[in-house]
Amino acid sequence: MGPEETLLNLPIWLTLFRLVLIPFVVGLMFVPMSGFNIAAAILFGVALATDWLDGHLARRWNQTSAFGAFLDPVADKLIVCAVLVILVYRDPHYYVALPAAVTVGRELTVSALREWMAELGERGVVAVGSLGKYKTAIQMAAIFCMLFQLTEQGIVYGVGVVLLVISAALTLWSMIEYLRQAWPRLSMER
């Protein structure tokens, strides 16, 4: 597949659509009218659906590409980090801020680790595992719940906070696991 064809497949367009949704989700979080938080949650849900769909279609139609492999996790991390920052802004309590900081810190650390391992030709050492997938699923459910009831902060919001704390614990665990797997290469003298 040539570089000009890379942007023409549906999985890439779905990933780009997810990137376009980010300012809308974030913007809706600032609208001071009732119901806009639900609209933000729905758009976040649409982003989640496109995340699943683009990967499914890319594998099913054999339209995977280096550009797609780069862009998909970038889109995921951008929407998660952007929404977490605004959630902390809207609810600056430690039980929101601490798991959000852990999540953003882990994303930066693991992204840097993957980039460094790729430079060493050993990117597969820090490939996404099942723990990372569980963490992501819980994290996305947490954010959806928190967005859905952001203005009232009732039981659904509380469930989201609990899920966010659980996902932060899994986030730390998965980061430690990635670092453990990469440690033999990290500790080598150059």
Rank of each mutant, 00 (worst) to 15 (best):
D91W: 08
D91T: 08
P92N: 07
P92Y: 15
H93T: 15
H93W: 06
H93Y: 05
H93D: 10
Y94F: 12
Y94N: 13
Y94I: 08
Y94H: 12
Y95A: 12
V96I: 14
V96P: 09
V96Y: 08
A97T: 11
L98P: 02
L98H: 03
L98S: 03
P99I: 03
P99V: 06
P99C: 09
A100N: 06
A100H: 09
A100F: 06
A100Q: 06
A101I: 04
A101G: 13
A101P: 08
V102A: 14
T103K: 08
T103H: 03
T103C: 10
T103N: 00
V104I: 15
V104T: 03
V104F: 07
V104D: 01
G105P: 04
R106I: 00
R106Y: 04
E107A: 04
E107S: 00
E107K: 05
E107L: 05
L108V: 14
L108W: 04
T109G: 02
T109F: 12
T109M: 13
V110A: 10
V110Y: 04
S111L: 02
S111K: 06
S111M: 06
S111T: 14
A112T: 06
L113A: 04
L113T: 01
L113K: 07
L113S: 01
R114T: 06
R114A: 03
R114H: 01
R114K: 07
E115Q: 09
E115H: 10
E115F: 11
E115M: 10
W116L: 11
W116N: 11
W116A: 10
M117E: 04
M117R: 10
M117C: 07
M117H: 10
M117D: 03
M117W: 02
A118V: 02
A118C: 01
A118Q: 03
E119S: 13
E119R: 15
E119Q: 14
E119H: 14
G121Q: 02
E122P: 00
E122N: 13
E122V: 10
E122H: 15
E122S: 13
R123W: 02
R123I: 01
R123P: 01
G124S: 13
G124H: 09
